[in-house]
């Protein structure tokens, strides 16, 4: 029942079997959040360190709640990129952390591969909470969880991911995840926001929303990441919103049971109009709720997995 992987660095290396274990476990744990006492003692005495080098209240809070519902001691360690430029490297930070004996590490960093560097330096299980434009596996897992709860399956669905694919770790993780579960993934955006070779990751490419969405079961809208320089890749937000925004007119092209998703934060009026974000197709709040359950499942599965490696020898 333990996962095949020791760390959750990305969905690229994760087998379908593990994804199913995580989603099933999350489905079992979701009920805890509805109890009068929203807490189980599973990770009592374990220390979970949330190491955030990039500001993210939402993801950090979700991991914090997940850890606390499992009774872990949750420590938040927020470092800005500026403290790194003062000479302390990620490796230094890692060694300092090691001295605190964490049982699990949740890492968010603006540099792709930063969690992999920590995984090489530390023996602790690591969950990648988003690294640069590389992967954001827990977001994809909660997205899959949300879709599976609504559609009762993932296999055979058509999932359209639209927007700033080039800079999106959410897109990458979702392409791997949904493809592994048997869904068909499309990516849509202007050519300058579609990175080269994305087809080889298992996605189909379209430059027009109208072409992709009519038979879609899921439409996932992504934010334009201006902070990563996306702004120079199209003329203006106005033109972008007109061409690539999900609005009521475009929703009329869609299947009646389509799900509209967004990993947040939303730029209302740019990639998604307020009517759509708050409309009947939107499962954006379900995604947030699923996040806690999925992260609880991962914390539980990885913590327990780590323990066996160290202490279980000869125990049976």
């Amino acid at each position: 029942m333990a996962l095949l992987v020791k760390h959750m660095l990305g969905l690229e290396q994760v087998e379908r079997e593990d994804i199913e274990t995580i989603l099933d476990t999350a489905a079992s744990l979701q009920e805890i959040s509805y109890r009068p006492v929203k807490k189980v003692p599973t990770l009592r005495g374990k220390t979970q360190v949330n190491l955030f080098f990039e500001p993210s209240t939402r993801t950090r809070t979700s991991f914090e709640i997940a850890g606390k519902r499992l009774s872990a001691d949750v420590v938040n360690f927020t470092a800005s990129a500026s403290s790194l430029s003062k000479g302390e490297t990620l490796a230094d930070t890692a060694r300092n952390l090691w001295a605190m004996r964490p049982d699990i590490l949740v890492v968010r960093h603006s540099a792709a591969g930063a969690p992999h560097l920590l995984a090489k330096l530390l023996d602790t299980p690591i969950i990648n909470a988003g690294d640069g434009a590389h992967e954001h596996p827990t977001q994809a897992l909660l997205d899959m969880f949300t879709v599976r709860e609504k559609k009762r399956k993932l296999s055979g669905l058509k999932v359209v991911i639209a927007g700033d694919i080039a800079h999106s770790r959410v897109a990458r993780s979702n392409i791997y995840g949904f493809s592994k579960m048997g869904a068909e993934v499309w990516v849509v955006g202007p050519p300058t926001l579609i990175p080269p070779g994305i087809e080889r990751m298992g996605a189909r490419v379209s430059y027009r929303l109208e072409e992709a969405i009519p038979d879609a079961d899921v439409i996932m809208m992504l934010r334009i990441q201006l902070e990563r320089g996306a702004g120079s890749l199209f003329p203006s937000l106005r033109e972008y919103a007109i061409r690539f925004g999900l609005n009521p007119a475009r929703m009329r092209l869609c299947k009646p049971d389509v799900l509209v998703m967004h990993p947040g934060p939303i730029n209302r009026g740019v990639e998604i109009s307020p009517e759509v974000a708050d409309g009947p197709y939107s499962v954006i709040l379900d995604q947030v709720e699923a996040g806690v359950a999925v992260r609880m499942a991962l914390l539980y599965l990885l913590c327990a997995g780590a323990e066996h490696e160290d202490t279980d020898q000869g125990r049976t």
Partner: peptide, 17 residues
């Protein structure tokens, strides 16, 4: 801004190409 060759692998790794 590039960190590696631009292509499938840079897309996969999320590194500027």
């Amino acid at each position: 801004g590039g960190a590696m060759h631009e292509g499938y692998i840079s897309t996969q790794l999320g590194l500027p190409g």
